[in-house]
Structure formats: C-alpha cells, structure tokens
Write a protein that binds this DNA or RNA. Structure first.
Lengths: 144, 144
DNA sequence: GATACTGGTTACCTCAAAGATACCGGGATA
DNA sequence: TATCCCGGTATCTTTGAGGTAACCAGTATC
C-alpha cells in the first residue's frame, strides 16, 4: 500500500487494447486494479492511468462510489487530501477481472491472429486503433 | 439446435441492463449465447435480439467473423440461406460470460441497492437508462 | 403485375462518452 | 507578493457506436 503505483502498470501497447471485455466503463477495471493494494489518493491513481483527465477520473470515481464499489474519504487538511478505497463489492470485481485476464492470456493471441489473417487492411476498425499512431487514445489501454 | 430461439431469451427489463460487464460490443455476448446451441440463420438470431437492425447485426457478425469467433456459411440457394456458427474461440467466451452472470447473480443486487441509496435522483446516469421509458435503447438489454 | 422472402447494403442522423483546455479555492511556502 | 499544491469544475469539441429508413437482387408465388 505504501509503494507508489507503477506508471507502466497499464501498457498502452498491450494487446488487450483489443480485448473484447470491459468492466464498467472505460477506466473502471483499471481503477479497481489501482486500488487493489489499498487506499490511494486522487493524483496517485492518475499516474498509471496516463492520459486520463481529472474530469473523467472524477466522474468515473463518483459513479463507482455511487455504485458502492469504492469509498471516498476527504480529510479536512491543506492542501486537500482525498483517499479512495475499494469496498467489499468493488473487491468482488477482482475475480471477474482475473477471469478476463485469464481469457486474454489463453485466447487473445488466437483472436489477434484471426483478425490479422482475415483482413489485414480492414482490421483497423472496432477494437483496434484506426490510425497506426501509438497515441494513447482509441479504446485506450486495457488491463493486461 | 432445431428448437427455435426464445424471443424472451433476453429480458429487456432485466436488471443486467445495469450490469457493468461487457463482452465485445453491445450485442456480441448475446449473439454468442444465441449460437451456443448450434448454428443459426441470420433472421433466426434477430428474434431474441429484439430491436436489432439488420445493419447492426451484420456489422457485429462481420466483426465476430473477422475475429474468429464465428464462421459464416452461405448456401447458394434461393431464397438465400446463411448460417452462423461459433468457433472454438467463440465458444471459449462462454465461460467468461458464465463468470459475468455469476458475478451478476451474487453482487448485482448490492450494486443496485447502493445506487438507489446513494442518489435516487442522480441515479439516472451511466449504466441505467436516462429516461424512464421502457424503450429498448440506452445500453440495451444485457444477458441475464 | 404485384407481392413476399432472405440476407443484406447504403446514406443519414443522434447522442452520450470521452478528451482538450482553462480555471478555482485556500492555505503553505519562498 | 507570488507561487505551488491538491482535488477538483466548467465549457467546448470530437468521436464513433449505434439507430432509422430506404433500397437491392433474384426467385417464387399469388
């Protein structure tokens, strides 16, 4: 819990960019993984989620709080300090995420291979990035 | 395989409308479930997926075919006949879908309860429908 | 001749999620 | 006085999945 989050925790070049599995909205699963090791502060979570804007992080966390997946604790200090922590319910998503990762590990290569074999030119729709730029947009990095 | 698909296979009022899990795009998981029992024809699949337009079904099936999840077999008959069947890879998604359903069964009530308790008025964003109409739009029916 | 059937295709539109950018309050620190 | 820090807000723009509606080929049937 004390250790800082690895900025490379989610690899933007990771093949699971193409993974056909999504938990919650775009960032939810990654946030759950960020909080797996214990409570984290707002800007702490932003680090591995490179590119997430504060607006989007706020609204995702608010939705997760509303759904009982995380708790938000604001300390009346200065500068302000807010900590987010997984609830039991949020923690229950970890097994599901693990299942998704397991599927990915076993079957994603086959999917990617099929995609490449089927239409090398037209394969640039849907889950893969349209352009060949490595910019962290598109569907964004998924959990690996 | 011979039995027709149940039009009520996917309940539009099903609580998993709010389920935070998605496999592929909006319809992929439901199509996988439609094909679980064997090969099916285009218009056969449309029945339980009430409201899906041929355009969207076509593009979803094409994407699934490209990714090696289904095979498409067109018979040179008249009127035309086309059959879709799960591949081994597509079939491998069934365990993942089962995991998602299991999570739903165990934890979705708690999520819904938290959502209702937290902001009865503001609960109309994200995974729930914006309007209160029962129209089959929004995130659409998920698998139950 | 008109209609139906199957499995689509095409053009157009809508709407919500997400991103870009800028700004804020208020105490601590220089 | 000025700047930094933290945890956000406010506003605008983009984007792309998905929906609506119309049309198609080719045969068969009414």
């Amino acid at each position: 819990m004390a250790e800082p989050l690895d900025p490379r925790m989610f690899d933007p070049v990771c093949p699971s960019s193409a993974m056909p599995i999504q938990i919650g909205d775009k960032w939810t699963a990654m946030i759950v993984l960020c909080l797996e090791g214990g409570r984290r502060r707002f800007n702490e979570i932003r680090v591995p989620l490179r590119g997430i804007t504060p607006k989007v992080l706020t609204q995702t966390l608010r939705a997760m709080e509303r759904d009982g997946l995380v708790t938000r604790t604001a300390y009346d200090e200065n500068p302000p300090r807010v900590e987010y922590e997984l609830t039991e319910l949020g923690r229950s998503l970890l097994t599901l995420i693990a299942a998704a990762r397991a599927w990915s590990e076993h079957h994603l290569p086959a999917l990617l291979e099929a995609r490449e074999a089927h239409g090398p030119a037209s394969a640039s729709s849907r889950w893969s990035r349209g352009t060949e730029s490595g910019s962290p947009q598109g569907r964004g990095p998924s959990f690996r």
